[in-house]
Structures are given as structure tokens and as C-alpha cells.
């Protein structure tokens, strides 16, 4: 059984159907990119995968012992967060909350998990710095470390490079690829088609009327890549 299996999924947003009869699956170790224009239902799909939204029709099945609350989620940043007084350590360790139920304080094991993940992402020296004083790229690493505290299996990243400069963006993609190579499954929602085709092994491309799901190679040869490429080229983001 796959890690996630989506069957005939129909989703709606404010009573308007945004996605119909969507079928795809995520295997353990996959790197899936979800691409598509604004309004194609990407955000609604993310909510459904996180069990924050009920499907109109169809099902989302979790396999291989993946629990609903064991998805490491990297949400888009809010403006309030940018000026939030919190130390890096406080933010990272809050990722451990899903596994602890009602107990009020963190255990030694959870503190170690937090420190290990900070080490892994190269932000150990930022431990006591304030989140609001960090650069955009550092903030994303902190949120990524928090997401890793919440999961051992699956990361779900929602437009993670928004607002980052090209060098930091490239570094961030390398980091995700490294995490993926260490056995954590990645689902990334992105506008960046060139990054999707460079890193992902599977692609889900959503359009208003239809969608593509398959291997990266198949996607490159399909008319979806063409359409998407032209669309994005017009926006001036990705020229190829």
C-alpha cells in the first residue's frame, strides 16, 4: 500500500468545485511536486491532505502506518510571524507537540529531537536568536526543522521559496533534496516549474479543467509542461 492514496477526490471551496475526480498516489520515498495556476485547487488539496477539509466525494487513504497528525507541514508564513518574539529553539520544539497529547512540558527526548533537527539543517548556532531577527532563508530553515520534529515520514511544503532570493532558493531546494534522499517523502506545492522538473520524481499538475499525474519524464513530454512553461514564461519567472 502507498503512503497516501487519493481516490476520485472532489473538493470544493466556498461551494464552488475546484477539483473533480482527482486520482494520485504517493509512495514512500517519493518527491512529488504539485504545480498549477492560482485557483486550480492546490491550496484546497493541501488542506484536504492535512485533514483540515472534508472531501465532497472520494477518499484520501493513509498507508504504511502514517497517521493524520504525522505530516510535517511547512505552511506559508503569515505577516504576524515576521515580527514574533520567539527564540529559534521555542519555534523548532513546538513541532513536537503533536506526539505529546495533554502533557504540559517537553520531555528530554523531544528536546533532543529538536536539537538534532536544528543540527541537521545547520541552524544550531541560531538556537537562542530571535526568530524575527533572522533572514527569510533562515526563517524557512527554522520552520523546516519544526516540520521535521512533527514527522518521520512525510513533509508537506506549501510554496516554501516565496520571497527568497535565487541563491537562497537554490540552497533550500538542495536541502529538501538531501532530506528526501535520507528517506523522507516530500510533497511540495510550488509555482516553480523548473524546480519541480529538476528535483521531483513525480508531478501533479492541476488545471481548472483537467490534471496530469505521473513521472517527471512523462510530464516533460506532455503538453502540460508546454502550457505551464509558456504560462510561467509570460510571468517572467522561468524562461525555459
Amino acid at each position: 500500500m502507498a503512503l497516501i492514496k487519493v481516490n476520485d477526490l472532489t473538493l470544493s471551496y466556498e461551494n464552488i468545485t475546484v477539483t473533480e475526480k482527482l486520482n494520485f498516489m504517493v509512495e514512500s520515498g517519493d518527491y512529488l511536486c504539485i504545480v498549477g495556476e492560482n485557483g486550480s485547487g492546490k491550496s484546497t488539496l493541501v488542506k484536504a491532505l492535512l485533514s483540515l477539509k472534508k472531501p465532497e466525494k472520494g477518499t484520501i487513504e493513509f498507508g504504511e502506518g502514517l497517521k493524520k497528525n504525522e505530516i510535517g507541514y511547512l505552511p506559508q508564513q503569515t505577516s504576524a510571524q515576521k515580527s514574533f518574539p520567539a527564540s529559534v529553539y521555542e519555534v523548532v520544539i513546538s513541532g513536537c507537540l503533536n506526539s505529546r497529547g495533554i502533557r504540559p512540558f517537553y520531555s528530554a527526548k523531544e528536546r533532543k529531537t529538536a536539537l538534532d533537527n536544528m543540527e541537521k539543517l545547520g541552524i544550531s548556532e541560531l538556537k537562542n536568536r530571535s526568530y524575527r531577527e533572522l533572514s527569510g532563508g533562515q526563517q524557512q530553515r527554522v520552520l523546516l526543522a519544526r516540520a521535521l520534529c512533527a514527522t518521520k515520514k512525510l513533509l508537506l511544503l506549501d510554496e516554501p521559496v516565496t520571497g527568497l532570493d535565487p541563491i537562497i532558493t537554490a540552497e533550500f531546494y538542495e536541502l529538501i533534496a538531501k532530506i528526501n534522499s535520507e528517506g523522507i517523502t516530500i510533497i511540495m506545492v510550488t509555482h516553480d516549474i523548473s524546480a519541480a522538473t529538476a528535483y521531483a520524481n513525480r508531478i501533479l499538475c492541476m488545471r481548472e479543467d483537467r490534471y496530469f499525474f505521473g513521472k517527471n519524464k512523462e510530464f516533460k513530454n506532455s503538453d502540460f509542461a508546454d502550457l505551464a512553461g509558456r504560462k510561467f514564461a509570460k510571468g517572467g519567472e522561468n524562461g525555459d
Binding site: 505552511p75 513546538s94 513541532g95
Partner: peptide
Amino acid sequence: FVFFYTKIFAITFDESFAKATGG
């Protein structure tokens, strides 16, 4: 406040993450 301090922090900092991880 003391008993739920860690949860209050998580929700104050990032509601969508807290929700997604089952809070």
C-alpha cells in the same frame, strides 16, 4: 496558562501548523 503553555505558544505562533499537526 501554565499547564497549556506549550500549546498556547504553538497556536499563537502558527495556527495553521498547529491545526495540521492535530492540535
